[in-house]
Design a protein around this nucleic acid. Structure first.
Lengths: 121, 121
DNA sequence: CGTACATATATGCGCCACACATCTAACGGC
DNA sequence: GCCGTTAGATGTGTGGCGCATATATGTACG
């Protein structure tokens, strides 16, 4: 059982770029699609996904239980009826952690390979 | 001129996954296609590219001057005539550095977002 | 109040990156 | 000489993603 879960997670790595960005954004709190895009824009202007890519990814990830529709919009924003809010699931958080570890290892390899300066901290 | 080069590099990021893996592997020394695959396997079992993807990527990257065919095989291995050895070019190293910085920033974001432990070194 | 622009979500289309499958052939051990 | 491994190459299919477009609500402003 736990084995099955682990295997599924391992097999679906590496995560798609959009998906990791989405999970990373939602790890900080509930957000709606357009808001996630702006969040990514703020963090890395070079990797901003297309809106089509975004909404399709959201649908797919709900399907895969990596995220779920937030029951109701967060307090402050009672206004805009159009927005669909999402939250990260436990499975999503596990996936994001696994992928983050992968990226970290890659980064470490790059540093060892002399492609990055010693301590960028 | 320098500007043009910088712009081209920035626009073609992020690198394809295979390509970064190849550059990362070749940054450590000259290698042949099959050897690169084994190198990647050793480093990250989850992201091992298909052989088809690999050989096509190598051809493309030679075309784009990110790598080049090594004139002749490295000393110790005078044996196997089948092997095609490659080495990283300056342009390739620049691209790899840029991509490594991108991944490093992503990793940092993941750490800030609580998806990674504090100091992994 | 109208209308112009930003916000928000959604979908058809086409390209291309990649995995999968298959092929060829040289290598090394027995 | 046979056979499994190593090495490289190529045809094919799927799916992710960018591009364009559609639709509709929110908001600012005269």
């Amino acid at each position: 059982m736990g084995m099955d879960r682990d295997r599924r997670e391992r097999e679906s790595l590496p995560l798609r770029r959009v998906e990791f960005h989405i999970l990373l954004s939602l790890a900080a709190g509930e957000r709606h699609g357009y808001g996630i895009i702006q969040d990514i824009e703020a963090r890395d202007e070079k990797a901003v996904p297309d809106v089509g890519t975004m909404y399709r990814a959201l649908a797919r990830m709900v399907e895969n239980r990596l995220i779920e529709a937030a029951a109701r919009r967060p307090a402050a924003d009672a206004g805009d009826e159009r927005r669909n809010y999402y939250r990260i699931t436990d499975a999503g958080r596990r996936m994001a952690r696994a992928e983050a570890r992968r990226l970290e290892a890659l980064t470490r390899a790059a540093r060892i390979g002399g492609l990055l300066a010693k301590a960028t901290k």
